[in-house]
């Protein structure tokens, strides 16, 4: 993905050692869907209420800043119980599950995740009433140049 080739020499440098992806790609969108179905239990995940904030272009798949926010009053009667992150192209579809409750005050989590490849990431939230809400984001994972051989 050389957008602007500075010179012929640098084009040659396309032969530079490129970093290895953090993972061999192995999971599939089907595996991710199965994991999400298991998380949702009987519920049909609905779009909305979940906001997934993750960079569109990732500089390095080893640490991708990821924030999930869920629209919820976080009261005793109505709150987020669990937030889960899934991916489609790492060896395993699961990334993390966060357990929350009314004492969190706000349904918001921030972490850093590994992504082995350009892919789609999903965030699902289960509410106290058992309903499940979802958001997803497509992102491009690039590899750094000039790594040790």
């Amino acid at each position: 993905m050389i957008l602007r080739a500075p010179s012929r020499r640098l084009l040659l440098a396309g032969g530079l050692a490129l970093a290895a992806a953090p993972f061999p790609a192995r999971a599939t969108p089907e595996a991710a869907r199965a994991a999400m179905r298991a998380f949702a239990g009987g519920a049909e995940p609905r779009r909305g209420r979940v906001e997934l904030d993750i960079p569109t272009l990732v500089e390095n798949g080893n640490a991708v800043p990821t924030v999930v926010r869920v629209d919820s009053p976080m009261t005793e009667e109505d709150h987020v119980v669990e937030i889960a992150l899934f991916n489609e192209r790492n060896p395993l579809p699961d990334i993390a599950r966060f357990h929350l409750g009314p004492r969190c005050g706000e349904a918001w989590v921030s972490t850093r995740i590994r992504l082995g490849d350009t892919q789609t990431v999903h965030a699902l939230a289960r509410m106290k009433d058992g309903s499940v809400w979802a958001a997803s984001a497509e992102l491009i994972v690039t590899l750094p140049a000039c790594i040790e051989g």
Binding site: I2, R4, P6, L10, A13, T142, A145, C146
Partner: peptide, 18 residues
């Protein structure tokens, strides 16, 4: 290639995705 060719002459340019 010299260090200078990349870092003096082509800083800010793309090399692959970097």
């Amino acid at each position: 290639l010299s260090c200078a060719q990349c870092h003096d002459d082509n800083a800010g340019m793309k090399l692959g995705a970097s």
